[in-house]
Design a protein around this nucleic acid. Structure first.
Lengths: 211, 211
DNA sequence: ACTGGTTTTGAGTGATCACTCAAGGTATGA
DNA sequence: TCATACCTTGAGTGATCACTCAAAACCAGT
């Protein structure tokens, strides 16, 4: 029995899987940043030729925006899962901070998670100076997350879990800044335990708003 | 009498003002990032030809590191000034947070301050994935600031301003993460007052460690 | 086998990247 | 005034940038 492998058919064999490609692009951009990632890098990571990339995504910046949306989607799903599994909105927030701290201090960093800092924050810091439309895109994503926190806090207030005089929007902004700080700090090369300690300190600071 | 300074290490000192050039480079890098700033951009900002830049600073990455050192030096001086003017170490920390919030929410942003986020943090987020020696350099600068906070907190403890069971190093890390979060958050395009509100919330969270 | 329409390919586009260096300019002492 | 030594200049280096497009390869339906 002879198994024939057609060499001629090789070149066009790989079917391009858009979802999978987008996922790979997201990871590479997350790790290396927008300016730090070249099309050549992407060609290699996606195992695609330049033409295919441009046919599928249009341009480097369009691909970046899509990758960022995908990242924010994953992030939202994590957060929603925490809310769904928790007994209360506030408990969901605590659990989310712990989950972030845990994934940020995992040693299998390069495998699971290309960077510890949040890709949206990285984007805003990197592109705030010049590439304004990308920065604007990232800003919208942050606003969405802030509003989600605000909703959870209002819910906590109506359940009596949170003092009435607390301003939900202001506390939501505080939470977002805490997340930014936690994950930016985690990007430092620092003892693993420090990140989890930091997360616990942050949770304690939130709890001072309890009734 | 003329004092001659190591011409080999600092050529062109008579005509080109190295300090001034470094300052301009620092501002441009701070705003646009490492990969986002080209030598051509620097030529324009420093009003220098490429040869002069390379004669004075060696390479783009060497210039970046020097610019980062200059930034960290300015930052340390601000912090030291807060400590010197304050009645106590803890009051110095409070005053520093307020100063950061104030300069981050100033409307004359492009004139005074090229970016709201901290340049050292921007560096770590941008170069953590690839340009490891630059990231390492930035990490050292952060460690130095952390140690300065730790020293101030120990001093506060010995004065009886801070509860004894507080771990100074851990609280110093918390402070640093708070600063990262505050300034990264300030980079969002958001209402001016929000940053000052956030700074006050952070200060309140620190005060819960008081005796 | 043939045809029509889609997808894949990768060499090639001009622009820009970080960087160099020989040539020309300038200050100083004789 | 000239000679020497340091300084400034900017055109030019090869590499790489984001991106294109005509041709090759593919897969229907007939």
């Amino acid at each position: 029995m002879i198994i024939q492998i057609s060499i001629d058919a090789m070149p066009n064999m790989k079917q391009m899987n858009r979802e999978d490609s987008l996922d790979r692009a997201m990871r590479l951009f997350w790790q290396q940043g927008y300016h730090g990632t070249s099309i050549k890098d992407l060609e290699q990571a996606l195992a695609l030729h330049p033409g295919s990339i441009y046919a599928a995504f249009g341009s480097k910046s369009a691909l970046y925006k899509e990758a960022l949306d995908r990242y924010a989607q994953d992030l939202s799903e994590d957060l929603e899962r925490c809310f769904a599994e928790a007994q209360s909105p506030l408990e969901g927030i605590r659990s989310y901070f712990r989950q972030v701290a845990s994934s940020c201090s995992s040693s299998a960093r390069d495998g699971v998670c290309p960077a510890r800092a949040c890709m949206v924050v990285k984007t805003i810091l990197e592109t705030g100076g010049q590439d304004r439309d990308i920065a604007r895109h990232a800003n919208r994503l942050l606003s969405r997350i802030e509003r989600r926190f605000e909703r959870a806090l209002k819910e906590a207030q109506s359940r009596g879990d949170l003092r009435q005089e607390v301003n939900p929007r202001r506390l939501a902004r505080y939470l977002q800044a805490q997340l930014m700080g936690l994950r930016a700090f985690a990007q430092r090369d620092i003892a693993r335990g420090a990140v989890k300690e930091l997360a616990e300190d942050i949770i304690k600071s939130i709890d001072s708003c309890l009734p």
